[in-house]
Amino acid sequence: MMVAEAKPLAEIQGMIQGYRKILIAGCGTCVTVCLSGGAQQVEILAASLRTAGKQQGLAWEINEETQLRQCDPMFVQQIRDRTGEYDAVLSMACGAGVQTMAETLGDIPVLPALDTLFFGGADGQGGFVELCAACGQCILSRTGGVCPVARCAKGLTDGPCGGAQAGKCEVAKDTPCAWQLIYVRLLRLGQLHLLKESTPPKARRVHPARLVREG
């Protein structure tokens, strides 16, 4: 899933400063799951902004709506008729959602309320970890199912940098060294020999990527 987190309220207030009638649009997929942009967060952000508006004597009129998936124009189109009356849409989706929304809604400014962080998975209550970097050339078969591209701070594919201390990455002390995890997994799988294979430098992916299924 896409993992995102709310922008600081001050930044959001700055973005909507010049608008009067604003729609806060939540997204019911990834950002709901990562507790950042679902119906509940929409409600909280709306209440927060209304309170802030009141404090500052701003006549913000704020409404709420949550789409099932903002990154699909067909879902966004469902609210298109209703958005005409707004001066701006504050999207609580990931960057993909914000852009789909912007493109689909036409002439209304669509503003991001979240910062999109990474692709990841759940890690305990309220926890999410980056697991995939979308490099386009998956090597998980050789790394015990642990991705060093996403989970090693330097994205090293030939083994650890040597900077780990007590199994933790030197860049973020609460993050396990990906290569330490790889070693343990390969040891358990009886595949330590894979560590000796060199990985040729990856061909870097070209942005923006596009995928069209052949019909």
Partner: peptide, 12 residues
Amino acid sequence: YECASCLNCVLV
């Protein structure tokens, strides 16, 4: 049916 299957309920 609005459940997003985030499983936060399972955890809390």
